[in-house]
Amino acid sequence: MTLGRRTLLTASLALPFASAAAQAAWTRPAGLAPDASIPLWPEGHIKPPPGLMEQVVQRSNDPDASDRMLQGITRPRLDIFRPAKPNGAAVILAPGGGYRYVVIDKEGYELARWLKERGVTVYVLFYRLPGDGWTNGADVPLSDAQRAVRLVRSRAKSDGVDPARIAFGGFSAGGQVATSLLTRFDAKVYDPVDAADTLSARPDVVAGFYPVVSMAPAIAHAVSREKLIGTNPDAARETLYSPERNGRADMPPLFLLHAENDSVVKVENSLHLHEAARKVGVPCEAHYFAEGEHGFGLMKATGLPVAIWPDLFRNWLAARKIV
């Protein structure tokens, strides 16, 4: 029996109420699925807060443009997209969602498939959310990001990637996850659990796509800020979680993409991080477009000058000798 896209998308709406087996299979619509999915942490290592339950919500009424989000993440993991002929490059993607959920398609699977077609092995990261009741909630996204980089390095031989050619990119709030690795890749935010944790969590390059960066009230994305550091953080906490205030000379090279008319995440997030990188002598390639608003991904950029951004990103990866 052949299932159409409408049938598959309708089925995804029922998953929050489905069995555990059905819930585990949510990533497998025909032609769209990752090639594998691996847990970030060993079985039993993390204990979800009481009552937390993963739910998939379909946000699109267009059967040809799936736009799902994952809430209540209890099983942080990497969904892997493997090219037929790997070129040795690895890209880890952290989708956005305002630290309330993680987008699946628009900022995860879409770019993953695009890069896969060009020889890149892609890992879409479903990270824990800081407002879901985890212990040390503000650091769980960073813990998962560090673990993701280390895990990919530990799997380099079996996955056909070069452990010295790992990029980490993030969209919107996922951009905050990514840019936190610029300055806190070596922060001790979890205790080692296995041999993978002996490896470096520093990506070789970092990319922020219309990223949330700063926790400064004047430019912060208010929802992300509240979820990450609370409603009344002190100045030290606000600074710690603002990558643009913690520039260091050993940060990875940086790629930034932002629309100047972004009404959700102010372009100043990218501008201030760009300046911070410049001050410490870290290479930063930045592309600012007049139009695009927020969350354009691949599909919503169609017809605008910003639609060239995936090629700009890939060309930058090539210039940095990642692809």
Score class of each variant (00 low, 15 high):
residue 229 I to Y: 11
residue 255 F to T: 01
residue 251 M to G: 02
residue 2 T to C: 04
residue 282 V to C: 04
residue 263 S to K: 10
residue 293 E to Q: 13
residue 81 F to T: 03
residue 286 A to K: 05
residue 209 F to E: 05
residue 159 D to N: 11
residue 167 A to L: 00
residue 85 K to G: 01
residue 134 W to D: 02
residue 77 R to E: 11
residue 67 D to N: 15
residue 314 R to Q: 11
residue 258 H to K: 13
residue 309 W to S: 07
residue 278 R to A: 12
residue 248 R to K: 14
residue 56 V to S: 06
residue 260 E to T: 11
residue 129 L to C: 10
residue 226 E to L: 08
residue 258 H to T: 13
residue 3 L to D: 11
residue 299 M to S: 15
residue 188 K to E: 15
residue 182 L to E: 11
residue 12 S to W: 09
residue 11 A to Y: 11
residue 195 A to N: 09
residue 13 L to A: 14
residue 121 T to Y: 00
residue 161 V to N: 06
residue 184 R to Q: 15
residue 219 I to E: 11
residue 314 R to E: 04
residue 21 A to G: 10
residue 53 M to Y: 03
residue 90 A to P: 01
residue 236 A to H: 09
residue 251 M to S: 13
residue 186 D to Q: 07
residue 11 A to E: 12
residue 170 G to N: 10
residue 160 G to V: 08
residue 60 S to R: 03
residue 251 M to C: 15
residue 108 G to E: 03
residue 194 D to T: 11
residue 268 E to F: 05
residue 210 Y to V: 08
residue 168 F to W: 10
residue 103 V to R: 09
residue 21 A to T: 15
residue 260 E to P: 03
residue 163 P to R: 07
residue 244 E to Q: 14
residue 20 A to W: 01
residue 153 R to H: 08
residue 20 A to I: 09
residue 86 P to G: 04
residue 172 S to T: 14
residue 208 G to T: 15
residue 95 P to R: 08
residue 119 G to Y: 00
residue 212 V to K: 04
residue 199 L to P: 00
residue 117 E to T: 10
residue 176 Q to W: 08
residue 35 D to K: 11
residue 60 S to M: 07
residue 58 Q to A: 10
residue 239 T to Y: 01
residue 110 E to P: 01
residue 186 D to V: 01
residue 166 I to N: 03
residue 199 L to E: 06
residue 260 E to M: 15
residue 175 G to A: 09
residue 32 L to P: 01
residue 118 R to H: 02
residue 290 A to T: 14
residue 321 K to C: 00
residue 290 A to D: 08
residue 33 A to S: 12
residue 218 A to V: 14
residue 8 L to T: 09
residue 309 W to E: 04
residue 303 G to D: 12
residue 199 L to T: 14
residue 61 N to E: 08
residue 39 P to M: 04
residue 210 Y to M: 05
residue 91 V to P: 01
residue 122 V to T: 13
residue 187 A to R: 12
residue 234 D to T: 11
residue 311 D to S: 13
residue 65 A to R: 14
residue 9 L to K: 10
residue 138 A to I: 02
residue 126 F to W: 10
residue 262 D to P: 05
residue 147 R to Q: 13
residue 270 S to M: 14
residue 321 K to D: 06
residue 273 L to I: 10
residue 107 E to I: 07
residue 152 V to S: 05
residue 99 Y to G: 01
residue 119 G to C: 02
residue 183 T to H: 08
residue 45 H to W: 11
residue 92 I to K: 07
residue 307 A to I: 12
residue 263 S to D: 08
residue 119 G to P: 04
